[in-house]
Design a protein around this nucleic acid. Structure first.
Lengths: 204, 204, 204, 204
DNA sequence: CATGAATGAGGATTCATTCAT
DNA sequence: GATGAATGAATCCTCATTCAT
């Protein structure tokens, strides 16, 4: 009964509609937060009536859940990319600048904060996050482990898990940092990130 | 007109009441979020009528603000403590375990997430955070700079700012991490933190 | 943004609804006053939920304003009628009885009193009244001036403005008078009015 | 049980207190209306605690009633004055300017409007007004009748009642007129009043 | 006498959700 | 499918009034 999408005669059209709603939701959520955005607002942004949305989503919470789910995949994709790289460890370090810069944009960091807070009180959301995180972590772990073995570095699983969790915390803390310090100078920050990434990934 | 607390003939009692409200708010907020918690709920938890709360706080937003302010001081105090240490750099590294463990408790990390999300859409809250963060950063910077100079390490201000922002992001990402991975093994995580802290604080 | 009515796909139905609300409001307002009448009361009288009223009016104040506006038009219409008359001066005098009788009905005089009091503290309402009054005065002035010129009577504008303001004050005082003296004998009162009207309109 | 003032050991002090409250009420009422003024506001203006006011008045409504009662006496006093005049009819006409000017001050006309509106829904207030009005009317009638008899003018009681009611309506309409037309030119208005008063009082 | 802390009912307003069309 | 009219519960907040001190 959970997460099951309603049956529609024309599944293609239904998916288009669902996407319309989720896109509208993104715009509203990022401006007003999950709970500040009203269904009326979302429906207007989606170009369909409020009532009609309920043909595609059971409730506002279901929209939030679908929205979070969708956002979750972004991280997964990053991992997929990383897995393709020749030298993933160096890639992580080299891309630090790009990733940090990306997080500078308010449009980028508002939604994560909203999602995290929602997860902190909505167990369904929390579970989604945890589930996705676990998959990403496993993938990340195996990428890093292989890369370190190739370099002749120690690759104890537990140790690596610890380091990777720290690494991810660092990135996840970035939006939080920007709220507290919107004027942060980016170059030195990136330098700091590089030091950390180098230490975590290339140290004994 | 700003931030001025209402005059009460018995300031002691008033403070007790205010604290009652803030304590109740903490309990409600952590369970339901700032906006999920109703004044009725808070008033019940505080053991006073909803109307009466308004003798101590101008609005629900004022409660949130006071609550955030209170939480904010915790960080300030950490800095004050640090300033007293003989070897602050080593202290930061040594205390990593303690700080990480502290953040493990859901009661500890739920509120920050809520605060961050609130700040992302409530400018008043954001300003409070930024203001407090700036003070803490300055203090932290001067502590670390002095300590590094004493050790004969480079202490360029901009470079240090970058590293410290990264360091703080790391800690602020911790609650986010726990939401995604509540089963994280703490010891390896702490080890990861130590690597980072050592690199940031003691590297050239 | 001002005074713009919300767009409704079926304007006819919307107008019916709006009228329902205004009629209900009239009944409640006249019994309890603008501020004594609650939205719940009005909604019950209007046969629709309180929430739904907000699809047609932005706020209770907007209902009051619309209501006042509606009442205001009554006076405008009287002027229009007057303008059509062959001998407007005599018409005013002849109709005195009718107008006074009309004002005798409590339903007629309760609302004006409420409106006047509201205007005395609500600038938006005051402005509506003043604006409408100005238009009516101008029309009234030109009607009376032309009629006096036709009769060969002096028609100095300032003098006429003074007399007409007095004339209107007389009528506007009528509801007030009825509250103080509900048993007033109408015939002699009308006779008094005729003396006044004759003096104001037909004197040198 | 009605209107009975509470017993106080020191009636003198009690009266002082009551007056304090009524004075404060006047200031609050004129700014915010009877229902817009809160007991807290009044108590602050009166320089005593809200609770204490209840030692002198049973309820807010009782304050309003007492306040209206007090205001009512102003008109009575005018009549007393008039009764002393050598030529009361001419006095009324001569004083028109003064009375009209007095009514120009917003402080003067806000309260009457508030009182009238209150009377239109509060029967207790209405009764007070009616009772006081009746006394004033009788006095006014006898003054005018005697004066007209002295001048050899007709003095039929019913006719005079009609004229006097019209006269009073004229004055009571003045505040209403000022709300609608705050820029009214006073001199011509007074001239209009004189025409009316002359016609009502000195005509056959 | 006097305070003001405390109550609790009632206010306007919002909004997720339903359902007749 | 699609609409938006309609609901009603819930929300924040105000305020007359009471009462312990």
């Amino acid at each position: 009964m959970n997460q099951v999408e309603k049956k529609h005669p024309d599944p293609e059209r239904a998916n288009t509609r669902r996407k319309q709603v989720l896109d509208a939701a993104e715009s509203c959520f990022s401006r007003r937060g999950f709970h500040g955005a009203s269904m009326a607002e979302i429906s207007k942004a989606a170009g369909m009536s409020a009532g009609h949305i309920y043909n595609y989503f059971d409730s506002k919470d279901a929209i939030i859940a679908a929205f979070v789910m969708q956002n979750t995949e972004r991280v997964s994709n990053l991992m997929q990319d990383l897995a393709q790289r020749e030298d993933p460890l160096q890639a992580v370090i080299d891309n630090a600048g790009e990733h940090v810069l990306e997080a500078l944009d308010p449009k980028t960091w508002m939604m994560p904060l909203e999602i995290f807070a929602e997860a902190s009180r909505n167990p369904a959301i929390a579970e989604m996050l945890q589930c996705s995180d676990q998959r990403s972590r496993q993938l990340f772990l195996s990428i890093v482990r292989d890369a370190r073995i190739k370099r002749g570095l120690p690759a104890d699983e537990e140790m690596l898990q610890g380091r990777l969790n720290a690494l991810v915390a660092l990135y996840q803390g970035l939006p939080v940092r920007f709220i507290h310090n919107p004027d942060v100078k980016v170059e030195p920050l990136i330098a700091g990130f590089r030091i950390i990434l180098t230490a975590l990934l290339l140290n004994e």
